[in-house]
Amino acid sequence: MHKLIMAISMMLSLAGSSAARAQGQTEALIYKNPSCSCCDAYADYLQQNGFKVTVRETHQLAPMSRKAGIARDFEGCHLAHIDGYVVSGHVPVSAIRRLLGERPAIKGITLPGMPLGSPGMGGAKQEPFTIYEIGDGAPKVFAKE
């Protein structure tokens, strides 16, 4: 029973994520699979780049990503809530800073497919990362880095 409720509360907190700031640090709430260490490495990366990071474990990333408006083919392997936006996958901080600076009318951004060389993934970068907007229509390119 409480397990059903757990799912519901996750969804509520998705909707309610707000632009909390503490000591000038931007808060990032990351939902990740309990067993995925790449996502932990990404959390460390955000922390090192000045975000105040909270990590929560869940097995419901697929439905949560759908709920956040991310199409199946565009989801990353974890979901972060940062200052009113969702950030899916191993998105570099430069793109997050641009998002928070420009504050476009979109739900967030995603880097699908866990590319090598992206923050937290390890390995060598093979080609530019294509980061997509999460919005209501078909995903558009937000940045190439």
Binding site: M6, H59, A62, S65, R66
Partner: peptide, 21 residues
């Protein structure tokens, strides 16, 4: 029942683990 069967997140991680036992 959540009808998002066959998504790659579940397939590449721990499988479709649910929320109600």
């Amino acid at each position: 029942i959540d009808d998002g069967f066959g998504n790659m997140m579940d397939a590449s991680h721990a499988g479709r683990i649910g929320n109600t036992v």
